[in-house]
Design a protein around this nucleic acid. Structure first.
Lengths: 221, 221
DNA sequence: ACATCATTCAAGAGATAGATTGAACGTATA
DNA sequence: TATACGTTCAATCTATCTCTTGAATGATGT
């Protein structure tokens, strides 16, 4: 069997190339930041603590793998995810890791709730409690995604703005955060930060895609 | 730089480890074979053309990443996917690659239909044509999955048995093959082989999960 | 035109992964 | 028990990846 020209082998090689692009701690972190929106090389280098040259190289590797696009704006080069499928890929990767790698499950458990058994809020319960004004619902995705559709009554608080807007929230009212899905880390991070500041915060089970899929009402604009 | 105490960094590192396990041509191919069922190291080495030692090392790497489980049966060690999520991960990887890497799109296009515009069969059309006896529907997934539910009237022909069972098919009747989904390669491979033998073969659009999701009838047992 | 700044390129050292070889291990069969 | 066989281990060489440093590029603003 001569397989050097075998298209199947070539396909496997291409898939491996894309996977390898995800195969480095720093690149996963870069993608996680870029999941929140466009960022310049300088901003990403600062956020991750990498040198500019190093960050640039990792970003180019991700771009070569087709996971990122870049555009110039003034003196900055802005990188962004090539499409929403990249978020899905990272989510599935996280799901797989959580199911099959014990240490990831432990890390996520610690990350999700600290130590006192904070459970995510179900969708049905959320509708009731939101209508009764018992909870503040925040959407921590980038504002562009919020504009394309969000949970009725939710407030857009992109994760990056959260720290600066803490004064908006009533410490006596529970906050429910949601983002893109069960395995999107944005809401998890938001809840962790809010709880560190003394707020009562929970994460909505699942995210916007599941909300839509469940046929629940979606507000937009 | 020691970031080992930051749980977020640790999580990224774990995710990268899992991704890196997918980051080699041979390991992708091994997973693709294992998607069809349990296999011994020797069988996998033969299927892929790798040396036993090399195959063993790659398999152990996949197992360390949590993507595979192994069990002993007699003198053989049988590897299998850790769970169905691994198939999903590979599917999403392929989707992402197809969207964002031009060469993958080209490879898949060539793989899917050769050159004469063979289009996949829609679900609705399939029901009609199958009932009219105009087509033979084959399910090329592993038999275990067939038993858990399949398209009514479909015949179980696991991909590995296809070559040996060509005599069962009427060259005058069109064959429609399906597997796990739009991005599962089993049906693609089956169609390629059937067409190479002169059969008229097509791929069903989507696969069993989508069939179920569409609420179409499912036979089992 | 000149200076400035964000980004990229280029080259090198150090670390890591892949393939091959031959030996060692464990289980089944004679 | 002895032998055969599938699998894994250990050691080695080679190739590739990572990161740092310093220079080069390309657009902007004075």
């Amino acid at each position: 069997m001569c397989k050097s020209t075998d298209p199947k082998r070539a396909l496997f090689a291409e898939l491996a190339t894309v996977a390898r692009a995800l195969g480095h701690e720093h690149r996963v972190e870069l993608l996680e930041h870029l999941a929140q929106g466009e960022r310049s090389v300088e901003a990403l280098a600062r956020l991750t603590g990498l040198s500019m040259a190093n960050a640039s190289q990792h970003l180019q590797q991700l771009r070569r793998a087709g996971l990122l696009d870049a555009r110039r704006d003034g003196k900055f080069i802005l990188y962004r995810l090539a499409d929403d499928g990249v978020v899905q890929l990272m989510s599935v990767l996280r799901q797989t890791a959580e199911r099959n790698v014990a240490s990831v499950g432990a890390l996520l458990a610690r990350y999700f709730d600290g130590r006192d058994g904070l459970e995510p809020v179900g969708r049905a319960a959320l509708v009731d409690r939101a209508q009764a004004g018992l909870v503040t619902v925040i959407d921590v995705r980038p504002r562009e995604e919020f504009d394309l559709g969000h949970v009725p009554g939710a407030v857009s608080v992109p994760l990056e703005e959260l720290d600066a807007r803490l004064a908006e929230f009533d410490p006596a009212t529970e906050i429910v955060a949601y983002c893109r899905g069960a395995y999107c880390l944005l809401a998890v991070e938001a809840v962790a930060r809010l709880r560190a500041r003394g707020f009562s915060a929970r994460r909505m089970e699942d995210g916007m895609p599941e909300w839509r899929a469940a046929g629940l009402p979606v507000a937009s604009g």
